[in-house]
Amino acid sequence: MAVQRADARRNHARILAVAEQEVAAHGAGASLEQIARVAGVGSATVRRHFPDRRALLAAVFRERIEVLCARAAESAGAADARAALLDWLGALTDYAASARGMAGALVQDGGSGPGHADACSAKLAEAAGPLVRAAVRAGALAPAVTAADLITLVTGIALATEHLPAPAAEAHRLLGLTVQGLSPGK
């Protein structure tokens, strides 16, 4: 990989910072032209760093995804596998509900094109795998449930709540209902 010039690194960092703000404000459909304008660069510069919207969104979400992956790895050996999994799902819910556009980006990641193995949802599922397996071994989770299933549930909850006045609170309430189940006499 070639070493970037200092101005190219600064442009890259500035584009990412602006893109994160624009995606938070306008969701995954944030205007690439607006991002370029606010970052003080041309749209060709944005496209040189990020060839398409998907690449830009992946970069915007990458850092937080890495934090979630690290958190899963740290929790994998916890004594209480159920609590560790629920804590991680809560953190994922926090982020998915607060980062407008992330849930949509995870849904769009469902394809299998080039680079799909590096997609946000695939990274999250891989990171959550040990938590899920530990919860299954502990009898706290049905054996048929996969990490991808849980990420899909959180993604659906985030999509359903993102336009509500308090999306994170509502997302957590719905996650709680999902975990608890709908039948009071269980």
Rank of each mutant, 00 (worst) to 15 (best):
G40D: 15
L177Q: 12
S75G: 05
L124P: 05
S31F: 08
H12Q: 05
S98A: 06
C69F: 02
G40I: 11
C69Y: 00
A166M: 06
P165I: 00
P143V: 08
A160E: 11
A96K: 00
P165W: 00
G77K: 10
L182F: 01
G104Y: 02
I65K: 06
A25V: 06
A83K: 14
L182W: 01
Q180H: 04
L174M: 10
V67T: 02
R14Y: 02
L85Y: 10
E33T: 08
G77H: 11
A76F: 06
A8L: 14
G42E: 10
R14V: 09
H12V: 02
N11A: 15
G101T: 08
T45L: 00
L182V: 10
S31C: 10
R62H: 10
V18H: 04
L124S: 03
E66K: 02
S75A: 15
A2P: 11
T93Y: 02
A160M: 06
A166G: 06
A58W: 13
G104M: 05
A81M: 08
L150K: 09
V154N: 01
A83V: 14
R133F: 08
T93H: 01
D149S: 14
F61W: 04
G156R: 01
Q180S: 08
A17T: 04
G101P: 03
S75C: 03
A55Q: 11
G129Y: 09
D149E: 10
V154M: 01
A36E: 06
L106W: 15
